[in-house]
Amino acid sequence: MSQSVDRALGILPLLARGPADLGGVARELDVHKSTALRLLRTLHAHGLVYRQPDGRYRLGAHLFALAAEAVENLDVREIAHPHLVELGARTGHTVHLAVHQDDEVVYIDKVDSRYPVRMYSRIGKPVPLTVAAVSKVLLADLPEPERRALAARVEYPRYTARSIPDADAFLRELDLVREQGWAADLGGHEESINCVGAPVRGADGRAVAAMSLSAPGVVVTAEELLDLLPLVRAGAETISREYAGSGPAPLPAEAGAGPESGA
């Protein structure tokens, strides 16, 4: 990277902390004021920096507009899909991606398992809000007032004996999920299906989607599925880094075996 570009980019995090005068920018960059002024003028010409009436500089409106446009055009499904395929290939189980919309959590992508028993789920289908792992992951990330308001207005169908029965139990479950950073549905929707999920986060740290791994109990036990949780979390973290623009990272080497090898 050229020295001028490197120095110019160094101004942006400084101004993100608040307005600064020319002397402060020069000291931060360890350059002469004339050099700092030249860099500031270039950034100002592109709308990335704005000079206030008091002579101090702050981040420009065009920078915020670019950031907003970039976030709006990000497609988490497009970014996540290769990683869903990879996780499915490494485990053999069903992989889902879901997002929170209003009072629904909806599947936006799915990679089917490689064994004959298939899950009854499809892209665009809302998930059981109070029991699904992806739902718990996404709702646990809501601010507490929103969590409490949602818990008070949703219904609590008893799909199985393990379904969450009421708002108090649901809030306790969401608190646990928020603390541990992942969620599970071990027979809460269907006795025979278990699922683990983890959040995909944006640059601001908020959950923008949830990724999950599901399998019937006739293929793997709940304990065996939980053993694959590190792969799910690592996959979600990789998607998060790519979505946030901080770079990809590989899944860990120790993959759990798929159903054909008894995992």
Rank of each mutant, 00 (worst) to 15 (best):
R51T: 10
P145C: 11
P82H: 04
A184S: 06
L229W: 12
R27K: 04
T238K: 13
I193T: 06
P165L: 00
V177R: 09
L29A: 03
H81E: 07
V208I: 13
G88A: 06
A167H: 01
V85N: 05
D54G: 10
G235T: 15
H81D: 05
P116C: 10
Y57V: 04
Y57S: 02
A16D: 02
L63Q: 00
R56G: 05
L231M: 15
P13R: 03
L84C: 08
P157N: 03
D227W: 15
L48W: 11
E155F: 09
A20I: 10
R17A: 11
E237D: 15
V5D: 11
L171H: 06
Y50K: 05
G18I: 11
L176W: 11
E190Q: 10
A167D: 03
G245P: 01
T130K: 07
S246V: 15
L231I: 12
E86R: 10
T221S: 15
V31M: 01
I123Y: 08
E260S: 13
L231F: 09
A222N: 09
V117Q: 15
A169L: 02
A98R: 00
R118D: 13
D54Q: 12
D6W: 13
S113V: 04
L29S: 02
A234Y: 09
A198M: 07
L15C: 04
G205E: 07
G202K: 04
L176A: 12
L40F: 06
R27I: 01
D141T: 12
A36H: 02
V232Q: 13
A203T: 11
A184H: 02
V134E: 14
K136W: 11
M119G: 08
P199S: 02
P19K: 08
Q3I: 06
H100P: 03
P250H: 12
R172E: 14
H46D: 01
E144N: 11
R201A: 11
P13N: 06
D227Q: 13
R158A: 13
L39I: 05
L14Y: 05
A249M: 15
S4H: 14
G202A: 10
L213D: 10
A203F: 13
P248L: 03
T238F: 11
D185M: 06
P143K: 12
V220G: 01
I164Y: 04
L174K: 09
E155L: 08
D103A: 08
L129N: 01
A89Q: 06
A80G: 02
Y115K: 02
N73R: 15
R7F: 12
L138C: 02
P128I: 10
H46C: 00
S121F: 05
S212H: 05
A133C: 09
G124H: 03
Q3N: 15
E146R: 15
R118V: 14
V220Y: 03
Y156N: 01
P259G: 09
L37F: 14
L66S: 00
D112G: 09
R162H: 10
S212A: 03
P230G: 02
A152S: 08
K125G: 00
R58Q: 11
H32T: 09
G55K: 12
L138H: 01
D175Q: 13
L37K: 08
A167C: 02
G235C: 15
E237I: 12
